[in-house]
Design a protein around this nucleic acid. Structure first.
Lengths: 138, 138
DNA sequence: AAAAACTTGCAACTCAGTTGCAAGTTTTTT
DNA sequence: AAAAAACTTGCAACTGAGTTGCAAGTTTTT
């Protein structure tokens, strides 16, 4: 695990520091998306708020994580899986928010269906946010 | 126009006041979604910030407008069109954000395509956010 | 091992959004 | 049509998320 983390950081030309390692570890150990507050809680307040913000920002810029627009307009982050590392498949995502447990999941298995927009619209990116009840809460 | 506005407000058991009338008027005259800041600007700062917040909140609760989760995690609001007034078709929406002019449009013409989620997921609501270039900017 | 480059924590700040309350409006009642 | 009741508004003060500059601390490079 630690090795994998180092590899990811170095690969993105980032110094390997305590904060980055810890936060990346969290994402790797987690199957659902994390909000800033979740991260602060889970790191046991070992790092400054500002460091968490800056780390998330850096990871975003490097494409290590992506942000998810949720239907309640809060911000969540999730790891970009394998398929993201090569080329950019960021552009079409399905996310699922469970209204029972509150988890936000990145559904990589499913591809975004085609939408037929009225003539003249050029599509660059599609985000689909599905709200409902997840597998575990059903 | 003023008549239509009164009708909408009364229908939702809201007193007809200057602020509500003005803000509803803005939405009716607008084809794209508005952020809080847009409304403050367009009303010419005639109303207190707080009043705008409260009015938007009230309209949301009554289902007169709906909020749109944008891919940059800001909040926008748009009128619920005719089809919304009867029953609740709020649940499946396609929104389009133009990366050139910045407009956010509610694409009512198009219905949200079916997604095949892995077994066990129960879908309640689907929001689709398409980013790209709109008709007018193409 | 020292120098250069980068990261962190702190303090101070900004900005969106919220709350309580008194004054002002709208609606209901008589 | 006037008075009472119910609701809405603006103000001031607050909260909480997110940002910035900077000095001290780490990591990386040489």
């Amino acid at each position: 695990m630690q090795e994998q983390i180092q590899k990811i950081l170095k690969h993105n030309q980032l110094s390997v520091t305590g904060g980055r390692t810890k936060i990346l570890e969290l994402f790797l150990a987690q199957d659902d998306a994390l909000a800033h507050a979740d991260i602060e809680r889970k790191t046991g307040e070992k790092f400054d708020r500002v460091t968490v913000y800056r780390t998330l920002q850096t990871f975003l810029e490097k494409g290590i994580i992506h942000s998810i627009p949720t239907s309640d307009n809060s911000v969540k982050y999730a790891l970009c899986k394998d398929n993201c590392s090569e080329g950019h498949h960021h552009d079409h995502h399905v996310h699922f928010m469970c209204s029972v447990c509150g988890k936000t999941l990145c559904i990589d298995e499913v591809s975004v269906p085609v939408v037929n927009l009225p003539a003249g619209y050029k599509v660059e990116q599609i985000q689909m946010i599905v709200t409902g009840v997840c597998k575990d809460c059903a």
